Amino acid sequence: MKSYLFLMLAICLEVIATSTLPKTKEFTVWKPTVIFFLLFFCALFSLNKAIKTIPLGIAYAIWSGIGIVLISLTGYFIYKQKLDIPAIIGIVFIIIGVLIINLYSKTAGH
């Protein structure tokens, strides 16, 4: 259970870090750039803690799947970026995949 808390922390930190990318202006604005790298380092540190008991492939699938959904929502609500129907369908499939892993996989470390 503790590993899943680290995984959720890693996901949140990575989403916040990735959300700061546009503000870095291709890493030319120093404050958001430093924040980005600090948050990303903390995300990877948390992911490293999570994979002590969660298999790497499972942890990464969950991390990237939930991250994609949250970043897509961030792009939509904060940066006013639109998603077309194929993108939305793809994101739904990602959510389904993450649910299948968590609900049915014996390797998910439950």
Rank of each mutant, 00 (worst) to 15 (best):
Y4G: 12
Y4T: 12
F6V: 05
L7S: 09
L9I: 09
A10R: 11
L13I: 08
T18S: 12
L21Q: 02
L21P: 04
P22M: 00
K23D: 10
K23M: 15
T24L: 06
T28P: 10
V29E: 10
W30E: 11
V34P: 06
F36K: 05
F40K: 13
C42I: 11
C42P: 10
L44R: 14
L47Y: 01
L47F: 01
K49H: 04
A50M: 00
A50D: 02
I51L: 03
I54H: 03
G57F: 02
I62E: 11
I62A: 09
I66D: 03
L70R: 12
I71D: 12
S72L: 03
L73H: 04
G75L: 01
G75V: 00
Y76M: 04
K80D: 05
K80L: 03
K82I: 08
I85T: 08
P86K: 00
I88M: 09
F93N: 07
F93Q: 09
I94S: 00
I94D: 00
G97R: 03
V98W: 14
L99A: 11
L99H: 05
I100A: 04
I101A: 08
N102H: 07
L103Q: 10
S105H: 14
S105W: 07
S105M: 08
S105Q: 11
K106M: 02
K106I: 07
T107P: 08
G109Y: 01
H110I: 14
